[in-house]
């Protein structure tokens, strides 16, 4: 039986018995901890989630890393059907021949709702966010982003492409796909060299080109010819496959372009696959990142429509001038 103790003495006794690093290491060894760390990294891709308040430059980096919402836009179209070719080059060449520019009629706005999902849902890491963007034909847009597990809504007034993204896309565009691939990779290398934080994630060339193409498809001012050139450039990527008879995650007929890549930052991690689902006019319906073995990790799925107006509360929050603005509330 212990004699009467003061509260302070009791707490000191408790604190004296706290686990110390050496005793923890006996069971929770550095090797075991590293195993858990790699298990975590094997289930992730790119970089940790960036702040919603970060710069547009980081938003670009995140997009390239495949973790930011890739707004995928284009006018609502009916797919033109199978292109019916055997090789990626032939399939994409046929698809490119159907490429169209996005047209937004006077007085209308292109509304794109993008649902970003991280699987498995219902777990601590799983969840979703929804980004709604209203595009005007001058390249400026308004957007709202809400997370499934947070009450805040982020409002933005911006252009697409951003200046940082535009730096990756050659202007004027080269005349042929091979030159375009080379130009994008050169610009990507320059960008990485001049933006040290980005060195945290240096995508392989194949992913750069696929993501830049994806981003260019978003630009309402990208011409049909440039869209066609970008589509044809995808055929030149290593490890690219094309399925002309695929369906996107919503079951819509699509041409699926898949690019396998390894994350250079985690050479031991499983190979990943970046998939673009294009409709018959070469506009993006959805994209996904999958882990090796077919495990699904993230997806961005879009729904497009033409609307007459932008919600008043969105305009009131970020304005309608040609000035970038972001507000989270």
């Amino acid at each position: 039986m212990t004699t009467h103790l003061s509260e302070d003495t009791a707490m000191r006794a408790l604190e004296a018995a706290r686990p110390i690093p050496e005793s923890v290491d006996e069971v929770w060894s550095p090797t075991r901890a590293d195993r858990v760390l790699h298990a975590v990294l094997d289930q992730t891709t790119g970089s940790p989630r960036p702040s919603r308040q970060v710069s547009r430059r980081w938003a670009l980096v995140a997009a390239v890393a495949g973790i930011a919402t890739i707004g995928l836009i284009g006018q609502a179209v009916i797919p033109s059907g199978s292109v019916g070719s055997a090789t990626p080059a032939q399939a994409l060449d046929n698809l490119a021949s159907h490429a169209v520019a996005i047209t937004i009629p006077d007085g209308k706005f292109l509304k794109v709702v993008t649902t970003h999902t991280i699987e498995p849902t219902g777990t601590m890491i799983g969840g979703s966010s929804q980004d709604t963007t209203w595009y005007a034909d001058d390249g400026w847009c308004w957007s709202t982003t809400s997370l499934s597990d947070a009450p805040e809504v982020t409002y933005r007034r911006d252009t697409w492409p951003t200046a940082e993204f535009a730096a990756l896309l050659p202007q004027p565009m080269p005349d042929d796909p091979a030159s375009l691939v080379d130009a994008i990779n050169q610009r990507a290398a320059d960008y990485v060299a001049t933006h040290p934080p980005k060195a945290n994630f240096v995508p392989p060339p194949s992913l750069w080109v696929a993501l830049v193409a994806d981003g260019a498809f978003k630009d309402v001012r990208t011409s049909a010819a440039d869209r066609a050139l970008l589509i044809r450039s995808l055929a030149l990527l290593p490890n690219v496959t094309v399925d002309e008879h695929a369906v996107d995650p919503r079951g819509r007929p699509a041409v699926e372009v898949a690019v396998k890549y390894s994350d250079p930052h985690f050479p031991d991690a499983p190979q990943r696959e970046y998939r673009l689902f294009l409709d018959g006019d070469g506009l993006v319906l959805a994209s996904q990142i999958r882990m090796s073995g077919g495990k699904y990790y993230q997806s961005w799925i879009t729904e497009r429509s033409l609307v007459d107006s932008v919600p008043a509360d969105v305009i009131k929050t970020v304005g309608s001038g040609h000035k970038t603005k972001m507000v989270t509330r």
Partner: peptide, 24 residues
């Protein structure tokens, strides 16, 4: 510009905290 989070930041977080998370 504030340094954006990257994999190295995450690794650092893990290495600095994993013992205490384990103990919990």
């Amino acid at each position: 510009m504030e340094h954006p989070p990257g994999p190295d930041d995450f690794r650092r977080l893990f290495h600095e905290t994993n013992r205490r998370v384990y103990a919990f």
